[in-house]
Design a protein around this nucleic acid. Structure first.
Lengths: 275, 275
DNA sequence: CTAGTAATGGAATATTTTTTCCAATATGAG
DNA sequence: CTCATATTGGAAAAAATATTCCATTACTAG
C-alpha cells in the first residue's frame, strides 16, 4: 500500500487542483492517465459515473477508484459529492442562512449588507449563465419595431419599471409608464403598433397581469419579465424573459432583474439610434 | 391510468419548459407541487436524486416519479439524462458563459448584458469592502428612532427610493415617499421627530437637494445616500452613505445602491421589531 | 350517503453504480 | 534470470438509487 493516509480530502475546487498537481509527480502510469484526464475535464466529475470517466480516461474503473483515494477522498462518491455541493452552493438558501445569522445575534446592519451583496452577486452570475441570447435578441427586435413602449410593474417590480422608463426617456424613446397613480385606467392608451413590457414576480400582481392580458388580446407584443415558468405572465406574454433572484429573508436584491432590464433598454436604444 | 401515452419526451430544456407549462393546467395537487418546485429549480435536476428533489418539493418519491412520467419521460433517470446531456455541452460556468455572451460583440443585447452583470458584480464587491459598519450602524440608529421616515429620490435614484418605500411598507414602518406627483410640495409633511432619507447621484437632482436642505435646517435627521464626497448632499446630511457604482455607457446598474438601501431598511425593520 | 374513480404514500423490488478483493501482470534490484 | 514488490483489470459484493405495486385515503357524481 502506498502512503495516502493522514491527508485531508480537498474541500474546494482550488484545493482539489492543488492536490492534483502535487500527487501527479509520484503517480504510476494508469493513475497518471486518470490525473491527466481529470485535469482537462474537471467539470465532468459532477455529472458522470466512474464507469464513464474511467472509460473516457482509458483505464479500469478500479484504477480510477484508486485515483480518487490518492486524491484524499474515501472513494468516488465522496469526490463527486464535493463537486456537486460546490455547484449547488452557487445557489444557497438565504432564508435559513438569515435565520442562522439572527439566531447567532449577528443581524447587524453590516452583516445584512454582506448577505445582500452575496445574494446580488449570485443572482447576477446566475442571470449570466441562464439567459438565452437569442431570446433577448428577439425581445429587442419586438421593442425596436414598437411605435411606443408601455411599461407596467407594480409593488416589488416598480423600481424596475421606473428605471426602464428613465432609461428610455433618456434615450428619447416614446414610453409610457403605467404607474397606477390616481387609479386611472390607461389601457386605452395602447394604440396599434405599441408594445408592452410587463414585470411581475411572485406573488404576482393582479393589475399587471390584467393589463398584460388585455394587451395580448388586443394584438400587442408583450415582453414579460418574470421569475418562473409557472408565472401567469409566461402564458400571456408574446415572449418572456426569466430572472430568478435570490431572496434574503423576505426581500430580493433586484440586481439581476435591473441588469436585465437595463441591457434590454440600452440595446433597444442603440438599435434605434442606428436607423 | 391517466392518459400520458403518445407524447414524446422533451429533448431540450426549452421543450421541457413548454411541456411543464402545458401540463401544469391539469395536474392534481401533489404533482402540481412537483411542477412548481421544478419550475423554480430546474437546474437541480442534473445534480440531485429523486429522493432529494421529492423531499425538497415536499412530496413522496413515488409522486415525483409520476410527475416525470406526466412530463413524457419513462422515469426520473431518463429525465435526468436529458439534463445531464445538455449541461455537458453548455455547463453553466460563469466565466465561459460570460465570454459566450460577449462573443456576440458590440452593442448586441447579450454583450450589453454581460457588461451590466460584470459592472454589477464589481460594484457589489466594492460596496462590501468600502462600507463602514459603524456609519451604517449609526444610520440605522437614527432611523429606528424616527417617528416617520420620509424618502426622496428622483430620476435615476427613484427606483431606490421606491424600493425603500416598498420595504418599509411591508414591514409596517410609517413611511412617506416624496415622489413629485402633481408637483405638490409635501415638505410640510415633515413633523418633529421625523427623519429623511435622501438619495441622489451626479448629476444631482435639485429638488432632492432642496428637500434635504430644508429638512436639515428644520432640525430633522437626514440620511443621505449618494456617490461622492463632493456631493452636495454630503454637506447637508446628518450622515451620508457613499456608494460608487460603475457605469456602462451612460447607465448605472444600481445593484450596489439597492443592496445598501435594502440592508438599511431590513436592519431598521429588525431592530424595530425587537422593541 | 354511496359507489366508483383518481390520487397518494410507503414498502417491496429492480436496477444501476460504487467499492472491494484477488489473481494476473508488470517492474526493477540484485 | 529470479524474486520481491508494485500495479493492474476484472469480477463479485455492497450500497445507493430508481421504479413498481398496492393498500389506503380523498374526491366526485349520482
Amino acid at each position: 500500500m502506498t502512503g495516502t493516509i493522514g491527508t485531508e480530502a480537498p474541500g474546494s475546487i482550488e484545493e482539489f487542483q492543488a492536490r492534483l498537481v502535487e500527487i501527479s509527480e509520484t503517480l504510476p502510469k494508469r493513475l497518471l492517465q486518470c490525473a491527466d484526464y481529470i485535469a482537462l475535464n474537471t467539470d465532468r466529475i459532477a455529472l458522470s459515473t466512474v464507469a464513464e470517466l474511467s472509460a473516457a480516461a482509458g483505464v479500469a474503473p478500479s484504477a480510477f477508484m484508486r485515483f480518487c483515494q490518492m486524491m484524499g477522498f474515501s472513494g468516488y462518491s465522496e469526490m463527486q459529492r464535493m463537486f456537486r455541493e460546490t455547484y449547488k452552493h452557487r445557489w444557497p438558501d438565504y432564508t435559513t442562512r438569515l435565520e442562522n445569522l439572527r439566531a447567532a445575534g449577528g443581524d447587524s446592519p453590516s452583516a445584512l449588507l454582506a448577505e445582500f451583496v452575496e445574494a446580488g452577486r449570485a443572482s447576477l452570475s446566475n442571470l449570466a449563465t441562464t439567459t438565452d441570447p437569442a431570446l433577448l435578441e428577439r425581445a429587442v427586435d419586438l421593442l425596436v419595431k414598437a411605435r411606443m413602449i408601455h411599461i407596467i410593474g407594480l409593488r416589488r417590480a416598480f423600481p424596475i419599471a421606473s428605471y426602464l422608463t428613465y432609461a428610455f426617456e433618456k434615450m428619447e424613446i416614446p414610453t409610457m409608464l403605467h404607474d397606477g397613480v390616481g387609479n386611472f385606467n390607461h389601457r386605452s392608451a395602447l394604440r396599434p403598433g405599441d408594445a408592452l413590457i410587463a414585470i411581475t414576480f411572485a406573488p404576482y400582481t393582479q393589475d399587471t397581469i390584467d393589463l398584460a392580458r388585455h394587451a395580448a388580446e388586443a394584438g400587442h407584443d408583450v415582453v414579460a419579465i418574470t421569475d418562473a415558468l409557472n408565472s401567469p405572465l409566461h402564458r400571456i406574454g408574446t415572449l418572456s424573459l426569466m430572472v430568478s433572484e435570490l431572496d434574503v429573508g423576505a426581500f430580493r436584491s433586484l440586481s439581476a432583474s435591473l441588469s436585465l432590464a437595463l441591457a434590454l433598454s440600452v440595446a433597444v436604444g442603440a438599435r434605434r439610434a442606428k436607423k
